[in-house]
Amino acid sequence: MKVLLAGASGALGGRIVRELTAAGHEVAGLGRGARNVLRADLLDREAVLRAVDGRGFDAVVHAATALQGKSLMRHQDMAPTDLLRTEGTANLLAAARETGARRFVAESMVFGYGYGDHGDAELTEADARFGPRSADPWLERHVGALRTKEELTFGADGIEGVSLRFGLFYGAGSTDTTILPMLRRRVLPVVPDKGRALAWVDIEDAARAVRLALTTPGAAGQAYNIVDDTPIGFGSHVRAVAEAFATPAPMTVPLWLLKPAPLAYAIMSTNLRLAGGKARRELGWVPVHAGCATALRALADRPALAGADAPLAA
């Protein structure tokens, strides 16, 4: 297949490039970065269409975010990504039509089910509403962007839309560039989990799900939870990173202390588990890592971690 990939130079995008090229597919990155084959701001519709003019693709993958270098402490840190999930999706769908692409795979995520306490049951794609309305204007903006991204993906005429609802990422290009540096600088506090857990997935397992979503005929029009088998609280996950990499343990603080950092507060106060059985049944996707503990130990044992796993673009 010829695949147009938005977000090729990001952490997930780099893994998608490797996964697809290893399987014999041809990938062209689209974005503003110098390492993309096609250069355009995804929020500029005319620039996107100029970049793909005269080219043909079989599929488009939307994995573009603006999260690199963001602390995700303030709601404003998510605002650029919210726009990529709304305006950027509409522009990429226009590019898909322009280039003759039939399949469109959209990166989504666990918080599309909403922040807050969802109880201890694992939510499936069928028994939970995706993109519930929130009374908080900032949370509505974030969740609404994910809701809109799916609505656009599934509502595009002549396009086979697939949405992958990923758990929180860990692994090379994620853990080592976010949580680990903060632990080493001793600037990452955690709160007691108190029974709360979140859905997670290794970023390389996530990239494999993208390949399967592109090539599985029956996936068209479907949404899939892409999560490992072991929901775990945010604090417990951070402590697992500290143990695997032998860093100082994070400081534990009460949840109320994070209220001045409202996005972090929303994330760490959420209790949200997802069931991944549908992806296993319909895509044949099974995570290599059942949970983060073994994956993090394996990651810590890799030589030249940061250099060997730097994101790639095509």
Rank of each mutant, 00 (worst) to 15 (best):
D309S: 11
E87D: 15
G161R: 00
L72V: 02
D77Y: 15
A207W: 03
G69H: 07
Q222M: 08
S108C: 11
A64M: 14
D127R: 12
E122N: 06
A51G: 07
P248L: 05
R15W: 15
D82M: 15
A95Q: 03
A94C: 09
L5E: 03
Q76D: 15
R196H: 01
D157E: 13
G158K: 10
A34R: 15
F234N: 08
T21D: 02
A213M: 13
R102N: 02
Q222S: 07
V52K: 10
R280D: 04
V227P: 00
D53R: 14
K278D: 11
I16P: 02
T215C: 01
L312H: 05
R185C: 12
A249D: 15
A106P: 13
L164H: 03
A295N: 06
Y115R: 00
L296K: 02
A11R: 09
P248E: 13
N91I: 11
G13E: 12
A66P: 07
R97V: 11
I232P: 00
D301P: 11
G112I: 05
D77Q: 13
W200Y: 14
V37M: 10
Y115M: 03
L84W: 10
T247Y: 08
G88R: 10
A275L: 10
R165M: 02
A295H: 03
V191P: 00
L272G: 02
E46F: 08
Y115A: 06
N225E: 06
D117F: 09
Q222W: 06
V105R: 05
H75L: 10
T65E: 07
F234G: 04
A156M: 05
Q76P: 13
G116P: 07
A59Q: 08
A64D: 07
L83F: 06
A135C: 12
V162G: 05
G116Y: 02
R35E: 13
A240Q: 04
P262Y: 07
D41T: 12
T177A: 02
E46S: 13
L188A: 00
A64Y: 10
F104D: 08
L296Y: 03
R297K: 12
T178L: 14
R18E: 15
A11S: 15
A106L: 15
P262N: 06
A313G: 09
D117T: 07
F234C: 04
G131P: 10
L312V: 11
G14K: 09
H118D: 12
D41R: 08
P250M: 11
L146I: 00
D77A: 13
E107I: 14
G277V: 06
V143P: 00
L305C: 00
R97S: 10
P262A: 07
D58S: 00
A279R: 01
F130G: 02
A240P: 03
F234D: 03
F245C: 06
E122V: 04
A172E: 11
L152T: 04
V201C: 07
L164E: 01
A197M: 10
P132E: 10
H25F: 04
A240W: 01
F111M: 15
R280N: 03
A156R: 04
G100F: 04
L198G: 12
D127Q: 14
I179R: 05
G161T: 00
F130Y: 14
F57Y: 14
W200C: 09
F104A: 05
V238K: 04
V27Y: 02
H289I: 02
